[in-house]
Structures are given as C-alpha cells and as structure tokens.
C-alpha cells in the first residue's frame, strides 16, 4: 500500500453511556478505495460521524495526513481535506444548487471556487442545467449527486461516502459506481460505507466488515469476493 492517509487505532465512540463502536482499526492509503460493509445498525454511520468530528471519540486515535484529528472540530477536519458526505445527504433545501456547491468550497479561497465548480459541473452536467434551482426541489438521486458535488467542491484528499446508493434506481447505482471510479482516478481516496456489497467489492481494493460495532473481517476485496464461505458467513450472500 502507498502512503497512509487515514489511520485509525483502537477507536471507540458512542452516544452518552452507550458505546456503539469499539476496537476499531482502519487504514486508508492515499488514492485508495476502501469499503466498510455492514448491515443496518452495525455502527457504520457512527464511524463516519466520529471520523468527521461530529461525534467525539471516547478512546483511540484518528490520524489524517499525519495530523491527529480526533479532538478537532468538523470545520477544521474539512479544511484538511477529509470530507464526509452523509447518508441523509443534508443538502441545503432553501439554497440554490450553485449556492450549495459554493458552500462546499467554504474553506477554500474564492479563486478556487470557480475552478472547483467547473470541475463539478463537468462531472454532473445535470447540476449545471439546474444551477439556479432550489436544492429542496430536486429528486433523491439528484440530491445525492449534489451532496457528492458539494463534497468535491472542498477539494478532498479523502471522500467518505455514507450509503451513496441508498434509494437510487439500479441505473443510477450503475452511474454512481462509475462516478466513484472516476473521482478516484483523479487521485481522491474514498471510504465507501455501504450495504450494497456486490458493487462495492468490485470497485474497492480492500474491505472491512463491521458487525456489532467492531470489525469482524478485513482483507483484499478480491479475496473476499472470491471466497464464497466468507461471503456467506459475513455478508449474507
């Protein structure tokens, strides 16, 4: 593996007294696609929220690009180039598409904004067509595209996508995974947190399986894909 971008060691996190995650060790290399697979309630969203600083880790360390970030605020972590596109998309419904995208570049200079926007519009021509439309009027799939576009506006080194295929039609899911590879080809590392196991294992290099708040399996995506026993035992395939 090339240079380590994200390194998580012995991480635990939760809400109040209830611990959701424990003993989490995870690495993402620069430019790598890594999948975190697991069923609903396994702790996937908690993991994402802890990495992006929305939720405080109770134990353990998170290092990103050589900096300890487990005590940093979300805004600071975004400025470092670690962007989390949440499961609920969380686009700004009262703002136009263009305003949504511009806020994605909030931590970058104005000069960057134009360039980033041009790049995002090249990937998502549909967003360019509707740039003056309010985000609240978009369909679910379009909101997903906007959420990813807004994430790209922040010039990420690592993009965490939380259930990006959720609620998308099969055709849009195809588009999405093609898009993920395209983003990756531009040098952005991705952490895909998905229930959509089959397609995830095709684009990812490595995968972790999360169950009951901890990783129960970790290996090369190709190996997991090729081993029917592993797939049956851990992924219900």
């Amino acid at each position: 593996m090339s240079e380590v971008l994200l390194a998580i060691n012995g991480l635990a996190a939760g809400y109040g007294a209830s611990e959701v995650l424990r003993d989490i060790d995870l690495e993402v290399g620069a430019g790598e696609i890594v999948a975190v697979l697991g069923s609903n309630g396994a702790g996937k969203s908690t993991l994402n929220r802890t990495i992006s600083g929305v939720l405080r880790a109770t134990r353990g360390s998170i290092r990103f690009a050589g900096h300890a970030i487990e005590r940093e605020k979300p805004a600071k972590i975004v400025a470092r180039g670690l962007i989390h596109v949440p499961e609920a998309r969380c686009v700004f419904p009262n703002l136009t598409i263009e305003e949504n995208l511009d806020l994605g570049s909030y931590r970058r200079g104005r000069a960057h904004r134009e360039r980033n926007r041009a790049r995002v519009f090249a990937i998502f021509p549909r967003l360019a067509e509707r740039r003056a439309q309010r985000a609240g009027t978009l369909s679910g799939g379009e909101q997903q595209m906007l959420a990813i576009g807004r994430g790209l506006m922040a010039e990420p080194q690592l993009l965490i996508l939380d259930e990006p295929s959720l609620g998308l039609s099969p055709r849009l899911v195809e588009e999405l995974f093609a898009l993920i590879q395209r983003i990756n080809a531009a040098g952005v590392a991705l952490l895909l947190v998905e229930q959509n196991v089959v397609q995830c294992l095709e684009v990812a290099r490595r995968a972790y399986v999360l169950e009951g708040g901890t990783f129960v399996l970790h290996g090369n995506a190709a190996d997991i894909r090729a081993d029917p026993n592993l797939k049956r035992a851990y992924l219900g395939l």
């Binding site: 805004a75 975004v78 949440p86 969380c90 806020l103 994605g104």
Partner: peptide, 9 residues
C-alpha cells in the same frame, strides 16, 4: 449537520 460537514463553523 450538512453545514458542519461542509466546513462551516
């Protein structure tokens, strides 16, 4: 949440 994750303090 969307604002926080976009880097807005």
């Amino acid at each position: 949440l969307g604002a926080e994750l976009s880097g807005i303090d």
